[in-house]
Design a protein around this nucleic acid. Sequence first.
DNA 1: CTGTTAGCGCTTTCAT
DNA 2: ATGAAAGCGCTAACAG
Lengths: 336, 336
Amino acid sequence: MTATIRDVAREAAVSVASASRALNGHVNVTATTRARVVAAAERLHYVPHHGARSLTMAQTDTIGVVLPDLFGGFFSELIRGINRGAQAAGLQLLLSTFHGDATRTAGAVRSMRGRVDGLLVMLPVVHPVPPELGLASHLPTVVMNAGPGDGAYASIAIDNAGGARTMVAHLVDSGRRCIAMLGGPEGNADALGREAGFRDAVRTLLGDASPLILPGDFTEESGQAAAAAILADRRGIDAVFAANDMMAVGCLTTLSAAGVRVPEEIAVAGFDDVPVARYVTPALTTMRVNIADMGTRALETLAGLIAARGLRTASSQTIEPELVVRASSAPRTPRG
Amino acid sequence: MTATIRDVAREAAVSVASASRALNGHVNVTATTRARVVAAAERLHYVPHHGARSLTMAQTDTIGVVLPDLFGGFFSELIRGINRGAQAAGLQLLLSTFHGDATRTAGAVRSMRGRVDGLLVMLPVVHPVPPELGLASHLPTVVMNAGPGDGAYASIAIDNAGGARTMVAHLVDSGRRCIAMLGGPEGNADALGREAGFRDAVRTLLGDASPLILPGDFTEESGQAAAAAILADRRGIDAVFAANDMMAVGCLTTLSAAGVRVPEEIAVAGFDDVPVARYVTPALTTMRVNIADMGTRALETLAGLIAARGLRTASSQTIEPELVVRASSAPRTPRG
DNA sequence: CTGTTAGCGCTTTCAT
DNA sequence: ATGAAAGCGCTAACAG
């Protein structure tokens, strides 16, 4: 079928040992021998059998990536970043996406055991820390967007609380005094962090200890519903901070359609900076998250973990989102 | 380190052969033996070593996915679809994305040889049929979005020409008589197909053998540039069909900003139905493409190819896009 | 139905 | 610097 290293050795008239050494760039090989072997390999279209290799070397040069069903832009950015890191580290990516519960996640993870050197996992919800997920099995693991409590694994996450604080500061700075928040789905790590930051900032900056937080689930529809609720009972709200952009978009369009002037009467802000944010009218103020960077850094961290066999340095990194001001939060009273 | 099948065999007090048979669900094993083995495996957290397995079985249960840097929504949809198919077929996905030239592609492909049972490839440009890409190496391969000429491989592609014809028919049907097209990047398979369909339909439906085709490169900016060109010289154009949505969006917004009424004076239509299409004002008429479906079917086709070892059935499938009518192409003269 | 054994392709001691 | 041979974990003949 396909050429093996024996074929190459025979073709080059050397032993398999020499062939192996030559092909793997070991030092103890004559230049001429190496040349002969390389030429033979070339001629035979030799490709090492990865399985055999991983059998002897006890390592696969592959890392498993387990992701939930993500929003489009988010997903591709993340993969792009991870792939960038993998390319640099000479690692392959075994990908599995899943929808739904932790059982599925566990299944995805299990099916990867024994074929990867490490795991890059992103959990959809946080509170139930990686359960009997089966991770611990001495497989280097980096968890993306985990909650604060998961000290057992190396983790890397968006600074959601910090981002929310930045946004509140901006809204206050631009003249708003009564800010409502639109929350995210139950147990979602990002939503939780953003909510915490919001509460914190509103208390600190506006002295309000119990701001209005409307329910939401990250969908555009829930944003529309929240807008309807606000329309029914304004309560003096002059700004809405949604836990993600899609809800902000739903809220903004519904508000506008009902005749509420945005941002003059009510400012609207989101989180993520999805592509659509630039296109709604008025354009949406939001916190931009560099997802690709998160992926790259997650992979670099994992590669480090794998290299440092055993030295469990359960680090915990953070990605800082960046404020992007657009028309939906233009200052209440033009200054200057 | 981690338990091997010998450990399991010893723990269950049977031979490795029996252990293997029990674990792989062969028939010639007593129920009690099987139970003992399974229990032992469970107890030892046994996970088969994939490398060893692929060595003896000469198959990896893994398929390689090679994709160019894709637009976000497109990418995640495609992966979702592929993953769906893979899950169903019990196959793992080894993913590699690349930016740029064919050399990179070839590199990505080469690095996968020997570790996958088949390849799912998407080429960014078509004309240079998979070059010395190294595919042919007797590895079952399905090419997505290849041009018509690549008979060597099984392929699956969007019916771009058909979609373009559908769109032209709709525009004509809604009262337009002078339709300009906005082309895509050099050598891009999708752009080429859409252009061909456009030419065909305009000739057939409007008797125009040489319609205006403005240059474009799939970016929003090129759509804006095209709009500027049209504003400078209207030529009686009453509709613009862009080869993708992002160009249509750029064109539409620039036209509107210049005071041209869309769709009354000029209708605008795109292709793809990206999320943004719904949010621009007026909302964009476009051809929706079911990308996930393409991914699933591509994988199913590949699985079939792998199963039918050697029976090279270089099939060629097609995904039909669907017309989505929105405000940007509302009928010129309201009917009824 | 079960156990023994021979490889799968590769790397790596250990001699030379 | 090179070769012979052992063995990684697993499956599949081949006996029994």
